[in-house]
């Protein structure tokens, strides 16, 4: 099993590990996610119908509504949060969204995480130090 280290910076602190759920498509929480069920509901999204609960959720960026953080807060309250988030490009939507989701989150990694990490890889996120450790599933 090969291991890969990525270095970036903290968005929200904490340490967590788990199985990766990766998309190369941007995420709209409001109108694209069912917060109480914790699944992606945007039609035509490659993760349609999939749950991010307890995953290390890896995605390029947010899109869409300014309701991003409102839905992120409901995801937390409904117990549907991912274990951590790895966001390639931070924005105001994901910045405040991660603050209210309250899960370890990193960004600005030295390589594109949506290229390096694949769904099913085991990923450890040390957000305090901005380090991501990936164990490839194969």
């Amino acid at each position: 099993m090969s291991r890969i280290l990525l270095n970036g910076r903290k968005v929200v602190g904490g340490i967590s590990e788990g199985e990766a759920l990766v998309t190369k498509q941007t995420i709209s929480t409001w109108g694209g996610v069912h917060a109480v069920k914790g699944i992606i509901t945007e039609r035509n999204h490659e993760l349609w119908g999939q749950s991010f609960k307890d995953k290390i959720f890896v995605f390029p960026a947010a899109k869409g509504s300014s309701g991003w953080s409102t839905v992120a807060q409901v995801i937390r309250m409904a117990g549907q949060s991912p274990k951590a988030m790895i966001i390639r490009d931070i924005s105001s939507l994901t910045g405040i969204g991660a603050v209210v989701m309250r899960v370890p989150t990193v960004t600005e990694l030295d390589k594109d995480p949506t290229e390096i990490i694949e769904t099913g890889d085991w990923v450890k996120v040390d957000a305090d130090r901005g380090i991501v450790e990936i164990t490839k599933k194969k």
Binding site: G64, S66, S69, T70, Q73, S91, S92, L93, I96, V100
Partner: peptide, 22 residues
């Protein structure tokens, strides 16, 4: 999200897309 580009691009004022919590 639809008002933000009006503020930035059309009027030349400055904002990011803020959420309820910011």
């Amino acid at each position: 999200s639809s008002a933000v580009p009006f503020c930035n691009a059309v009027l030349g004022a400055r904002t990011n897309t803020e959420g309820a919590h910011s």
